[in-house]
Design a protein around this nucleic acid. Structure first.
Length: 397
RNA sequence: GGGUAGGUCGGGCAGGUGGUGAGCCUAGCUGACUGUAAAUCAGCCGUCUUCGACUGUGGAGGUUCGAUUCCUCUCCUGCCCA
């Protein structure tokens, strides 16, 4: 963590981040290899965190989560506050014990629900009033309450209660206002945080405006957070808008010793381009969600298992893949499971896409470790690119 | 053989008592999904030259300006009786 007099005494190194292979001095890439040591384990970076909003990575059990290669997962403050209640989870021994996952956990603050539940909330300086999507009841979320909930849950990493906005579709004044407020809430969150075994990350906002982004980056980086999140992306912006924004932020953080976490990003090509620009950590629902909807990721493309062409296809989804799906079952069988709406389809597909994603990250780390990342970029892009969108399903014969 | 109820887009239905039938469910086809209100959502789903047009109510014929509707014959299906 940062060297901040006073705080360092009170807090017992909840997050040690070590850069093992720094970005090369020739500037060919800002990608770097790192190691983040947390209360419940070590996380190698660049790393992807599967999302388990309701204290479960949908369709998987903890053995599955381990087997796909996850070392850290994300869960959610807002959802667990509403149900089953953070006090209940605390009384039952904390989130790790509750869901029987003994590895690192990061909890999102509920800030994203300001966006995703846009119709059901009102914002003022004190916080956000949500109307529960479950029963319509009203709940006032403040930065302090978010920290209280996250401390009850006991995740390895908490994040500050921020205020993201859809970057490409938000007006300038609204963006400036929400960014400034988000930065004020960062300071309040830090002041409220007391749990010594829990790291706290701050979140940069600022939409796509380079000036606002710079201001927010300086504001957040100037506070003694254990890590720096880049929020408000992975929304409706274009890839080049996103990449420009990452460049602005990381450019200002180049000498900052803390991990950089881009929230919400998850397609393989997006992960690769963000790593290339200096991002260390990611989370995303995408691989798991699209898997449940039948889209399976393979090198250089993707397969929609609901398509008629797979009904008679005896091959595995991906040749040589180590996942439970590809080791044991054919495309034809998975196609049948989806058509029959059998529950096994969701588990197998999720295992595959998360394995694909996490193995891809491992491949990136391997390239960084051996100093071959820049040289291998074209090859890595080829493996990842078509999975962004508008991809043609590959049909390897 | 007699009686009776029916035949509407792959399947299941709604509707229509002389003037506007392409509506629903399901199956099927395709696409989307990025800090999870998502095992969800959207489009298509008779034909075509597809922002529109055309055809279509088992078949053939009749009456009529006009027929899914009325009449005749006929084919098919369910049920009851013999």
């Amino acid at each position: 963590m940062m060297n901040t007099p006073g705080l360092e005494v009170a807090r017992v190194s909840p997050a040690e981040f070590e850069v093992l292979v720094p970005a090369p001095v020739d500037g060919s890439t800002r990608a770097r290899l790192g190691r983040l040591t947390l209360s419940h384990g070590v996380v190698e970076t660049p790393q992807f965190m599967p999302v388990g909003t309701n204290a479960t990575v949908k369709a998987l059990d903890p053995d599955d989560i381990r087997e796909v290669g996850a070392t850290i997962i994300l869960s959610n403050t807002y959802h667990l506050y509403l149900r089953p209640g953070h006090k209940r989870i605390e009384a039952l021994g904390g989130l790790h014990k509750f869901m029987n996952w003994d590895g690192p956990i990061l909890t999102d603050s509920g800030g994203f629900q300001v966006v995703s539940l846009g119709e059901l909330r009102k914002i003022d300086e004190s916080g956000v009033t949500f109307q529960s999507h479950l029963d319509g009841s009203y709940h006032h979320f403040t930065p302090e309450l978010s920290i209280e909930v996250q401390e009850s849950l006991g995740a390895d990493i908490a994040v500050h209660f921020d205020q993201p906005v859809p970057p490409a579709s938000t007006g300038a004044s609204a963006l400036a206002e929400s960014t400034a407020r988000s930065d004020r809430w960062a300071a309040r969150s830090l002041a409220a945080h007391s749990r010594p075994d829990q790291a706290l990350f701050g979140i940069i906002q600022g939409g796509l405006d380079p000036v606002l982004r710079s201001e927010s980056t300086k504001a957040i980086a100037g506070l003694p957070f254990d890590g720096i999140c880049i929020g408000g992306l992975a929304g409706d912006e274009t890839p080049s808008q996103r990449e420009d924004t990452i460049d602005v932020v990381v450019g200002l953080l180049e000498t900052d010793p803390r991990p950089r976490y881009l929230m919400g990003l998850g397609s393989p090509v997006d992960l690769l381009e963000a790593v290339h620009r200096g991002v260390d950590m990611f989370d995303c629902v995408l691989p798991a969600r699209v898997a449940r909807n039948g889209q399976l990721w393979v090198p250089g493309g993707r397969l929609n298992m609901r398509n008629a062409q797979f009904m008679d296809d005896p091959r595995p989804v991906q040749d040589g893949c180590r996942c439970v799906l590809c080791r044991n079952f054919s495309r034809a069988y998975l196609s049948h499971l989806f058509r029959a709406e059998e529950l096994l389809a969701y588990r197998l597909a999720t295992c595959h896409n998360l394995t694909f994603t996490l193995d891809f990250m491992a491949e990136i780390r391997s390239a960084l470790r051996t100093g071959t990342f820049t040289a291998r970029l074209p090859e890595l892009r080829a493996a990842a690119s078509p999975s962004r969108s508008r991809a043609v399903a590959v049909q390897s014969e």
